[in-house]
Design a protein around this nucleic acid. Structure first.
Length: 505
RNA sequence: GCCGCGUUCGUCUAGGGGCCUAGGACGCCUCCCUUUCACGGAGGUAGCACGGGUUCGAAUCCCGUACGCGGUACCA
């Protein structure tokens, strides 16, 4: 049996999908799926000025990457199509006029200059927050003050106008929010919200209410920035005679610098705000989802790692917290490592290949060709050795290069750290011992070094560091002996003798 | 300014009157493992914003203060 739980994610295509938007979408999705309900994507493109035509595609692909499957939306269609507000214009006009007829809204002909003048006048006379409301509308040009004949004439002449909501002068508007409990507002604080703009398109408030009702949305789950406008929506439902959906206002995601996460106060701190950047970067989608789910929600026990299926079965709005949550980059990185390390070598290989394609300009050509000339099995084996030593696919590409190509110039700081006086003699002595070794395998290579260390009365580490530097050009990396065996005797000896020549000490 | 919402370790959070000497996770620190680097394991560090009530008893309930955040558009 199909659940009648229906929720929607309703972004405005004004730019790339924001990380906070993805979190809102995720909570909607989890709630819907938990109840066997429907997850709707609705594009709220009623602002022609801020419209960005690549935005919708970005939203769609980002949701897909994150694993949030849309049930009804512009791409998949559905019983309430169309799912773009720009394609539903006629509907809003009809409902707005219905409200005018019922006496809950009115036509207004004031120009923006006239409204501005009214506000300035009020500010001057000591009113700090002037509104177009039950009091001021009496002195403005609208269908409540103008003679009926004139209103009709202006309308028929096609004069520019808006339709405004007739907010009562004094009334308490109360509603129950699933997350915040009972919330109440005084209608005197609201202004006569514009419902239909002069360009013929609805404002968010009207379109949102009409669509949520006509699409039979049962729960409105959105960010806390909407809490203040919720009373307008409640009023609208009341005037239309519709039952409002259940409201749930999610706590906002905050920047460590304070305030809600915005491009400015987040990206300076290394926190990408566009989901796009996570998709293109080294992030595992499961990690981002797990992290985001735990921003304002938790299962109530000590679990930290949860798959999408587990999140779905455990999710409930009752467990969503009220306070804003600061985005903790270090924790995201930790989640990313966890999911990254849980990948099989085969999965790693495929994501590394994607990574290489995307970053081929930043990577060494010789490395790429050599890498691609190896079999998948060989490459996967290399990745398997490295997963526990790097934290993400981005580091993988940088840290396996020496499996394929000899290191280039040594970095002075690495040399200072790993190549000490006497290192040359030790490396030369090791070369001597393994040059004739056959087969060239990890265990005997290890034993040889061990013997050398014992003879010289040194710790294995003293020998290991310069050898590692000479062979890989790095100061950390995988088990050296396995590494030697993998690149083979010829290549190993070649690298060591080259290093011996370059690193005099 | 006004309206609304919020406030437990640095951060994410558990907690719904006695089980709290406030638990977990990230971070940070120490130790163990590894004669490298990591992974891993074991510990440690650190918090109920403040002030009044209510109660035998309050992190938990009520009031106030402070602070933070959101809103205050013909933007969403």
């Amino acid at each position: 049996m199909k659940s009648n739980i229906r929720v929607r994610f309703a972004p405005s295509p004004t730019g790339m999908l924001h990380i906070g938007g993805l979190r809102t979408a995720l909570f909607n999705y989890l709630f819907a799926k938990h109840h066997g309900g429907t997850f709707i994507l609705r594009i709220e493109d009623t602002d022609q000025n801020r419209y960005v035509d690549t935005a919708e595609k970005d939203i769609t692909t980002s949701l897909e990457w994150a694993g949030l499957t849309v049930d009804e939306g512009p791409v998949q269609g559905g019983p309430c199509a169309p799912y773009r507000q720009s394609e539903r214009s006629a509907l809003y006009r009809k409902y707005a006029e219905q409200l005018v007829e019922a006496g809950h809204a009115y036509f207004a002909f004031d120009t923006t200059d006239e409204i501005e003048a009214m506000r300035e006048r009020l500010i001057k006379s000591g009113n700090p927050s002037p509104k177009y409301d039950a009091i001021t509308r009496q002195s403005m040009k609208n269908s409540l003050t103008l003679p009926q004949e004139e209103v009709k004439r202006r309308l028929e002449a096609g004069e520019e106008h808006v339709i405004r909501l007739k907010v009562p002068r004094r009334d308490t508007i109360k509603f129950d929010d699933l997350i915040r409990g009972t919330v109440s507002f005084d209608s005197g604080m609201l202004d006569d919200q514009v419902l239909m703009k002069s360009d013929g398109l609805p404002t968010y408030h009207l379109a949102n209410v009409v669509d949520d009702h006509t699409m039979e949305v049962s729960h409105v789950i959105r960010g806390e920035e909407w809490l203040s406008s919720a009373p307008k929506h409640i009023l609208l439902y009341q005037y239309f005679g519709w039952t409002p959906p259940v409201m749930a206002h999610l706590p906002l995601i905050m920047s460590p610098a304070g305030g809600k996460l915005s491009k400015r106060n987040a990206e300076e701190l290394g926190i990408p705000v566009n989901v796009r950047d996570y998709v293109k970067g080294f992030y595992e989608p499961e990690a981002l989802i797990n992290f985001l789910a735990f921003l304002g929600w938790n299962p109530g026990d000590d679990r930290e790692m949860m798959t999408m299926d587990q999140l779905i079965s455990e999710f409930s709005l009752e467990r969503v917290s009220k306070a804003g949550a600061v985005f903790n980059m270090k924790k995201l990185l930790w989640y990313n490592e966890q999911y990254f390390r849980a990948r099989t070598p085969e999965q790693l290989l495929s994501s590394l290949k994607d990574w290489i394609v995307r970053h081929k300009d930043d990577l060494d050509d010789a490395f790429i060709t050599t890498f691609l000339s190896h079999t998948d099995a060989e490459n996967a084996a290399v990745l398997g050795i490295m997963t526990d030593r790097v934290s993400g696919i981005h580091e993988m590409a940088d840290n396996i290069q020496y499996f394929y190509v000899a290191p280039g110039a040594f970095k002075p700081e690495d040399v200072a750290k790993a190549w000490k006086p006497g290192s040359s003699e030790l490396v030369a002595a090791y070369v001597e011992r393994v040059a004739g070794m056959d087969p060239f395998e990890a265990q005997p290579l290890h034993d040889a070094l061990h013997a050398l260390a014992t003879e010289k009365g040194l710790g294995l580490g003293k020998l290991m560091q310069p050898l590692r530097l000479a062979l890989t050009g790095k100061t950390f990396g995988p088990d050296l002996f396995e590494f030697l065996a993998r690149i083979g005797k010829e290549e190993s000896l070649e690298r060591l003798s080259k290093a011996l020549k370059e690193l005099v000490a």
